[in-house]
Write a protein that binds this DNA or RNA. Structure first.
Length: 836
RNA sequence: GCGAAAGUGGCGGAAUUGGUAGACGCACUGGACUUAGAAUCCAGCGGGUUGCCCCGUGGGGGUUCAACUCCCCCCUUUCGCACCA
């Protein structure tokens, strides 16, 4: 018998070719229950990195494991192919974004195939293809019709380096999420998706995801949506200024209404100019506004910011008391939240407290805490807690929570206010002033105005015969063949929208396209959606906790309401696994730090199976892990050890199915132990892989089994009964490892003489009977401290166990001169003797 | 400040319902095999003491026969949000 060395390269090529030829990972057996496992698709940046390998290895184990469990598994892959890096790289390398992108896709597809992932490549998509974005343009038109898309001029986040606007979600601490440039504010007319229309449903439905999604992702989304319950309250101006007769504020504390001693407007509030133009102080106020607007965004948003304001010269009237309330501007009031105006209640809001002290405004206490009595003269900070209402006319003596309700009711009767809910969430700006994106299917006609493109004209092709500009600006406005067009309504000459869609639009619905990826007539059939959605298991990095995952949830609801999705589909992803990062030397891998580990080199050196194994073994999937060069050596060593064990015992091995050696085969103690270990491992590995996604402990369990096989191989291989037990254990090892290291396992499985590939085999069934043992070891404790162990026959009575324990030497020694007060017997586990 | 997660050997990490803390792997040490190395195999490997024990899961209290696990208080780290009225 020839003992070949483990040669991963050769084996892996062989099986990868076979899988491709046989189209091994297609789904479609509708007799079986469905399972849709999806990993976040990559941006084709050039090469896959370790983060991808980890992400896709996790997904692949789940996919392969579910197949073995009898599910019809959909496991697709594609490319999030529009976006800025392609444009920037094209400019840098003097090529075209399309060329660059498709070349990268080819490279990365080959790299993924080299890792042996079980994708159904027949469903591959690339979002930059017209066959894909055509449907996105159709969604755009239907959303527009439904009022879910609108155009408005507003101050926008502008990245000067990327020459484009950014969504709020794409601004991180005042910087562009892509290039870290400081984001500026610019007034621009842009297209918006009305995500705020779904704020409440997006918030409510997070409860449905409880258990399936990590708590922190749910918390982040709740935080981002930012619901506040309160009231809008109207304050009439003492002296109307032209058309302006009143101002509206939003507050979460209507119970403090009687504590209002001033009102504060954002400097950007649209009514400010008409309010101040007749004041002698107008010029001074304008200077304040200008100063505030010019302030750095980061600085402005910081809570370190010194609160500054200026009196407008106007007064409003308190809705209940009619008292004159001075109207101020304040640099801490945000124009874009609520109504851009807030009521100043210095006694019960810290910001107002600071502001009142600085400008010597009066402070009125309207809520007293339960056990102490506060005095505004001695207060050092605002009282923001609950208490009993005072100084509030007919509302005195109410608990403030009750006061909230009653004051809002009274306001509603007087038509001076109403209950209101505010969200922090803003509508999603989807216009981008860049070239490499999906064209927005809208036309501007001088006669007809804004005209949607006709559906039968879709797709609006992104022209590929353009030259990208050095300065990064989009060439589209100057591309006459694209920008100039006929108005679909009047036929006259018109201009096409030259902004493109934010790339997050493509990733908001790709999971649905996979269900019916080659459909040329509709974006997807209802049957395919009903069969596959929602995604049963979604896997990706936590960096998408807000952006992508919120947008995709929104799209699911919007597509449902526009009739593209069946009514019953309301959430895209039932379960979410957020995998941790792969670090090197405790830090994120990056080219600039020079600490990048290239997966291709690792595959060359150790083979795909080893790389997959190590990524799964190093840590549980949610946790970050530090890449270790000696760690991967260990994984490589383990596979070589399996290989060697197989070759060393090959002549005794029979092509048995896992867990098929009988109790009769396992006569000797060693055989019985191995058989038991085999079944125990099948049980544990199945639970760890399928229920808990703890691949590291599943692998550890199989390692234990392999170690046990090493220890008993000579003894067991000596007779045919033993060989049975050993062969069955070997089959179990290969079957259990096959989702993780499929190439090695398929190779040895085939060599054993099996004709059905492991890929089509079911997960083994362990048997209770095999787990039984005649003699068990239990712990002996005195007062909870371990004082020895004892072997006892399984299944003997508690009394017998206790009696045996009392006679144990160790126990006798530790209890001499003591009175035994109590004996705790935990069957199969331990005996604890309480003595003193 | 608000929210989420985490803290266990030299390191990555186990311990699933409260029941023998440290599985599995890495690193390290000793031995075998080798001219030597590599590879492999065997053994050891929390700390203190060596033949008994004592201490030990961020710290302090508590519940329990028994606590990494449950309860209370505190500390540290990471992440997200943050003048949102």
């Amino acid at each position: 018998m020839v003992q070949e060395r483990y040669n991963p390269e050769e084996i892996e090529q062989k099986w990868q070719h076979r899988w491709a030829e046989d189209n091994s990972f297609a789904c479609g057996d509708t007799q079986k229950p469905k399972y849709y496992v999806l990993e976040m698709f990559p941006y084709p940046s050039g090469n896959i990195h370790m983060g991808h390998v980890r992400n896709y290895s996790i997904g692949d184990v789940i996919a392969r494991f579910r197949r073995m469990q009898g599910f019809d598994v959909l496991h697709p892959m594609g490319w999030d192919a529009f976006g800025l890096p392609a444009e920037n790289a094209a400019i840098k390398n003097n090529t075209h974004p399309a060329k660059w992108t498709f070349a990268n896709i080819d490279t990365m597809r080959a790299q993924l195939q080299r890792l042996g992932y079980s994708y159904d490549w027949k469903r591959e998509i690339a979002t930059c293809r017209p066959e894909y974005y055509k449907w996105e343009q159709l969604f755009f038109l239907r959303f527009l019709e439904k009022g879910l898309i609108y155009r408005k001029k507003a101050p926008q986040n502008w990245c000067p380096s990327c020459h484009t606007v950014l969504a709020n979600e794409q601004v991180v601490e005042g910087l562009c999420w892509r290039c870290d440039s400081k984001v500026e504010q610019k007034d621009l007319t842009q297209w918006f998706l009305r995500i705020t229309a779904y704020a409440e449903e997006l918030l409510q439905d997070l409860d449905k995801l409880e258990g399936g999604w990590p708590e922190r992702v749910l918390a982040m989304q709740r935080n981002w949506i930012g619901k506040s319950v309160g009231a809008h309250i109207t304050f009439d101006l003492e002296q109307p200024q032209g058309d302006v007769t009143s101002l509206e504020v939003f507050t979460t504390r209507p119970d403090t209404l009687f504590g209002v001693t001033f009102l504060t407007l954002a400097p950007e509030h649209p009514l400010v100019e008409s309010l101040i133009q007749k004041t002698p102080e107008a010029e001074h106020i304008r200077q304040f506004i200008q100063r505030t607007r010019n302030m750095d965004r980061l600085e402005r948003q910081s809570d370190q910011l010194e609160k500054e304001g200026v009196f407008t010269g106007s007064y409003v009237l308190h809705p209940f008391t009619g008292a004159r309330v001075p109207l101020w501007l304040g640099n801490f009031v945000l124009a874009e939240y609520g109504t851009g105006a807030v009521m100043g209640v210095p006694a019960h809001d810290q910001r107002d407290f600071d502001f009142a002290h600085k400008y010597h405004l009066p402070i009125t206490l309207v809520i007293q805490p339960e056990n102490t009595t506060l005095d505004t003269a001695t207060m050092t900070e605002a009282m923001t807690g609950n208490g009993v209402m005072v100084n509030s006319d007919s509302f005195n003596a109410l608990l403030n929570e009750e006061g909230k309700i009653q004051i809002v009711t009274a306001l509603e009767q007087k038509k001076k206010g109403k209950a209101a809910i505010q969200y922090r969430l803003r509508d999603w700006n989807i216009s981008r002033q860049r070239y490499w994106g999906a064209p927005i299917p809208v036309i501007y006609c001088e006669q007809c105005g804004v005209v949607p493109e006709k559906e039968e004209h879709l797709p609006v092709h992104l022209p590929l015969d353009v030259k990208t500009r050095e300065d990064g600006r989009s060439p589209l406005p100057e591309t006459a063949s694209f920008a100039t067009c006929q108005c679909p309504r009047c036929g006259g000459q018109a201009r096409r929208e030259t902004d493109t869609l934010d790339t997050f639009v493509e990733s908001s619905w790709y999971f649905a396209r996979y269900t019916d990826a080659r459909n040329e007539n509709t974006p997807f059939s209802a049957d395919a959606l009903l069969r596959w959605l929602p995604v049963d298991q979604y896997i990706g990095g936590v960096e998408h906790a807000i952006l992508h995952l919120l947008y995709a949830r929104f799209f699911t609801k919007a597509l449902r309401d526009c009739g593209f999705f069946p009514k019953e589909i309301t959430e895209p992803f039932r379960n979410l696994l957020t995998q941790g990062m792969v670090l090197k030397d405790g830090r994120k891998m990056s080219k600039s730090k020079g600490n990048v580990v290239d997966p291709t080199l690792m595959i060359q050196k150790y083979g795909a199976d080893t790389v997959r194994l190590f990524c799964l073994f190093a840590a549980p999937p949610e946790r970050d892990f530090d890449w270790s060069d000696s760690g991967i050596e260990g994984s490589s060593r383990f596979l070589a050890r399996v290989w060697r064990l197989f070759q060393d015992t090959r002549q005794y091995l029979q092509p048995l199915l896992p867990c098929t050696a009988s109790a009769q085969d396992a006569q000797s103690a060693a055989a019985r132990d191995l058989r038991r270990k085999e079944h125990l491992t099948v049980k544990k590995a199945g639970e760890d892989m399928g229920d808990r996604f703890q691949f590291n402990t599943a692998i550890a369990a199989v390692m234990e089994l392999v170690n046990a096989m090493y220890a008993c191989r000579d003894e067991l291989c000596a007779d045919s009964a033993g060989q049975h037990v050993f062969s069955s254990a070997m089959s179990s090892v290969l079957t259990m490892l096959s989702p993780i290291t499929p190439h090695l396992c398929e190779e040895l499985w085939e060599d054993l003489g099996h004709t059905t590939p492991l890929n089509n085999m079911p997960w083994p069934q362990w048997q209770e009977e095999a787990l039984q043992q005649d003699v068990i070891t239990i712990a002996l404790q005195v007062n909870g401290k371990l004082r020895g162990t004892m072997d006892i026959p399984a299944g003997i009575s508690k009394e017998d166990v206790e009696n045996l324990a009392r006679k144990d030497q160790n126990i006798m020694r530790h209890t001499q001169n003591m009175t035994i007060r109590k004996v705790i017997v935990v069957p199969g586990k331990l005996v604890n003797i309480v003595a003193g």
